[in-house]
Design a protein around this nucleic acid. Structure first.
Lengths: 225, 225
DNA sequence: TTAAAATTTAATCGTATGGTCAAATTTAAA
DNA sequence: TTTAAATTTGACCATACGATTAAATTTTAA
């Protein structure tokens, strides 16, 4: 009973996870989930009352898995630079094994904006912010990263690992034309992204001016060609 | 007749654009589009046979608009650095006025992967690649950017402007907790992203890496003014 | 072994959806 | 004005979907 019970419920949950990730809430069909699990369609409603509830279970599980995996990185007692490197290694690895997760998550938040509040409230996502702006304030100050631009930095960091998976289809298609390979691209990206961020920040260290203004000085620069 | 004709068809097209962008193909309802346009539902089928065809018209128009707007940037006769700055100013501006475009596009490609081939084939998206790897090969070489890592660079460049809009909901929610504002964040991002990329690349210049072309002169930029 | 409870199945419902059609109305041509 | 064509409308269809229900089957506990 508990045996078979768990088996059925688990089969449903796993199939639902797979299909919801693949198709999203709107695109997923209860029939498909049942078929994929090899069970009668009514069982879906027996175990999870509605499609919404089933999706909910799946969504929260996924969100939890993602952020739970990420937090240890920021817990570790490392320098900012080391943390960046570790983050990209871990994060990109996680995404490489679950390439559709970002789109799934973003899409659902899009469909149901109320999710985002719960996400920010219930997951440790804000911890990344906290750690960056508190734990590493000194380092960032040394790099001339103003507290004001920490949001810019954070979003930039996230962009570099998430976007390639979000745009995987397009990237793959473009790569094909030039004979590149997405998988090896991703493998290289772990280090590339880390270096990219570190360089972008570290360079500030050497600039004598306090903060960039760079707006007005762009006309003369090139003699053309 | 031609007057009213255009009016009706245009109303349909505009409403469809709005609603498809908002809800995506699966989420959009033909009834909603008709209601929004203030016309009878059958007219949708009179002017555009099916939902697919209507969506198709909308999609291609949007894709075209996006890429057509972007290409001039890469056509201009500017240095790589200037091009980066101009790109972010133009691109982020476009996205700021149409914040849902990236998600719409990516989502549709997701739903219908065959789109991506047509997109790569019919839009000038590959031109960005070409320009970067051909027109600026010398500059990039000077920056120690190997041809091998140009894909990494390109994806990184795109990430920094596209991702913030893709993840707008989450970012906004996180900002709220810390009393930041998405709009001003985006405004600042035009310059931030450009500086970020330029710094990330330029820094390579100074690394004591072996270089066949003896032209490593690092201070060029900051002193120049 | 037996009865109650839990699980599974098949049939079916109500509704929403994309789409069709024929009639009504408006517009253009004679 | 008359007539044919183009446009618009409302009624309707077939289907797909999530959900319900009651009966059948299996499991559990006495």
């Amino acid at each position: 009973m508990t045996e078979k019970d768990k088996l059925t419920e688990e089969k449903i949950f796993d199939s639902a996870t797979e299909i919801f990730i693949e198709k999203g809430f709107d695109g997923a069909r209860m029939r498909d989930i049942a078929d994929h699990a090899g069970i009668n369609k009514s069982l879906l409603h027996y175990y999870y009352r509605t499609k919404e509830r089933l999706f909910n279970a799946v969504f929260e599980n996924i969100a939890d898995r993602i952020f739970r995996k990420l937090i240890p990185v920021f817990d570790k007692n490392l320098s900012f630079e080391e943390k960046i490197r570790l983050f990209y290694r871990e994060h990109i690895d996680l995404l490489h094994n679950n390439p559709r997760l970002p789109v799934f998550l973003l899409n659902e938040i899009y469909r149901n904006p109320s999710r985002v509040e719960k996400l920010v409230k219930d997951t440790p996502i804000m911890k990344i912010w906290t750690v960056l702006s508190e734990q590493h304030s000194e380092e960032l100050e040394r790099f001339n990263v103003s507290a004001d631009s920490i949001p810019q930095l954070m979003v930039s960091i996230a962009s570099l690992s998430l976007f390639p998976f979000i745009a995987k289809n397009i990237i793959t298609a473009m790569f094909e034309k030039e004979d590149y390979d997405f998988d090896s691209f991703i493998e290289k990206r772990k280090e590339y992204a880390a270096e990219f961020v570190i360089r972008a920040i570290k360079n500030r260290e050497q600039l004598p001016e306090a903060d960039s203004k760079g707006q007005i000085r762009r006309e003369k620069r090139t003699a053309g060609r």
